[in-house]
C-alpha cells in the first residue's frame, strides 16, 4: 500500500510540524524515512490517507515546515519477522 511521508531537513522540524498538525487535529506517526524517498536516514512523519489533503493544504499555506510530502510503497506487518 502507498504510505504518505512528510520529509524534513532536521528532526526538530519534524517534531515541530507534528505538534502543529496535532493542534489542527491531525495525528501523524514518527518513522524512519524510507530509502526510496531519501538517501539520508532521517526522521519522517507518516500521514494517514484520510488526512493527506488537509496536510497538503496546511504545508502549502505554511511554507518551509518540511522538505517534501511524498508517498512510498510500504507494507508494515508485525508477523513478517524481518528484523535489522
Amino acid at each position: 500500500m502507498l504510505v504518505n511521508y512528510l520529509l524534513f531537513d532536521s528532526h526538530e522540524q519534524a517534531l515541530n510540524l507534528r505538534s502543529l498538525l496535532k493542534d489542527e487535529g491531525i495525528r501523524t506517526r514518527i518513522a524512519p524515512a524510507p530509502r526510496s524517498l531519501t538517501r539520508c536516514c532521517g526522521v519522517s512523519l507518516i500521514v494517514a490517507e484520510d488526512d493527506a489533503d488537509s496536510v497538503r493544504d496546511y504545508i502549502e499555506s505554511h511554507p518551509g515546515l518540511c522538505r517534501e510530502f511524498e508517498a512510498a510503497e510500504q507494507d508494515f506487518n508485525p508477523n513478517r519477522d524481518r528484523y535489522c
Binding site: A31, P32, A33, R35, R39, Q74, F76, P78, R82, C84
Partner: peptide
C-alpha cells in the same frame, strides 16, 4: 552502512507502527 539504513524503516515499521 547504507545497507543497514535501508533495513531500518521496514523493521521499525513492523515493530512499532502496526499498533
Amino acid at each position: 552502512h547504507d545497507q543497514l539504513c535501508e533495513a531500518l524503516p521496514a523493521a521499525f515499521g513492523d515493530v512499532f507502527l502496526t499498533s
